[in-house]
Design a binder for these strands. Structure first.
Ligand SMILES: [Mn+2]
Ligand SMILES: [Mn+2]
Ligand SMILES: [Zn+2]
Ligand SMILES: [Zn+2]
Lengths: 138, 138
DNA sequence: TTCCTTATTGCAAGAAGTTACAACAATATA
DNA sequence: TATATTGTTGTAACTTCTTGCAATAAGGAA
């Protein structure tokens, strides 16, 4: 079984290794269907691999995000959440009720280009949370 | 003396109080000239008010941000930084060397409008950090 | 000034996240 | 197979951030 098998070659191609820890964490994210905090990943992945530790979870999530296998986003309180990489998208989050709305990347693509040509920076973020007030809460 | 005198009426108008703690924290931010982390604010403001505690700093920064007197932004590692509210602006931050570039809000204004009409959300953020790679580091 | 209301703070404890470093284990090389 | 290399993990200690709650004090009313 398992989703995370598919990721092993991606890692090996870059000189990295597929370990039981990375396997468990990817498996957890694959089957969650939503954004998870490091603590949630830790709790769930540990059911599969009891020897897993907190620092490994934090390090692995950062590592997988740097290598593009997962996406991170910062939620309102400043913490990170993660999900396996899908199509490029962002989120609108209501500061009042927490309601989330997914928006395709193409809706901000033009602004990215404007920022890039203006500044010379190449913007890397492909999973941003924009905060506001949803229509119900206004 | 002091910048923070000007803020007292803003607070009182909303039923809040100007305290020595809020005074010290606003004074610190007014005179820093750059984004500060809560820990930095704590260290600096304590020189002026030695009885100040950490929880008060975190609570006060959040409170002042909610009431528009200061602006928060999340830096790459997920932590918050703060500065007194100036004109609406955002930042481009290099993931490699950390170099920051300030960009006026109007450059993202159109994208905000697009997001808002598309979603019904009213976007509140006026101080976002966009991450990428600067021209030197590319 | 004195009393009252309640916004605000400090304290203590705990949760979340980070770091340094030694031990381990996967892979390459001989 | 034996050895070297180095990517990866666990441990322990630490820093940063949060929460519940009792004590405090700012500002309004008498
Ligand atoms: Mn997402
Ligand atoms: Mn700024
Ligand atoms: Zn809402
Ligand atoms: Zn750079």
């Amino acid at each position: 079984m398992s989703c995370s098998e598919a990721y092993a070659p991606q890692l090996r191609a870059r000189g990295y290794r597929m370990t039981p820890q990375r396997h468990a964490i990817l498996h957890t994210l694959c089957h969650s269907g939503k954004h998870l905090t490091p603590i949630e990943v830790y709790a769930r992945a540990r059911k599969q691999l009891t020897s897993l530790t907190e620092p490994t979870v934090y390090r692995t999530l950062e590592f997988l995000a740097e290598n593009g296998l997962i996406h991170s986003a910062q939620i309102g309180n400043g913490r990170f959440v993660y999900e396996v990489t899908r199509h490029a998208h962002h989120h609108l989050v209501c500061r009042h009720c927490g309601k989330e709305l997914e928006v395709d990347h193409q809706i901000v693509e033009k602004m990215y280009q404007k920022l890039e040509s203006f500044s010379g920076y190449k913007i890397t973020d492909r999973h941003i949370n924009f905060f506001g007030i949803c229509s119900n809460c206004q």
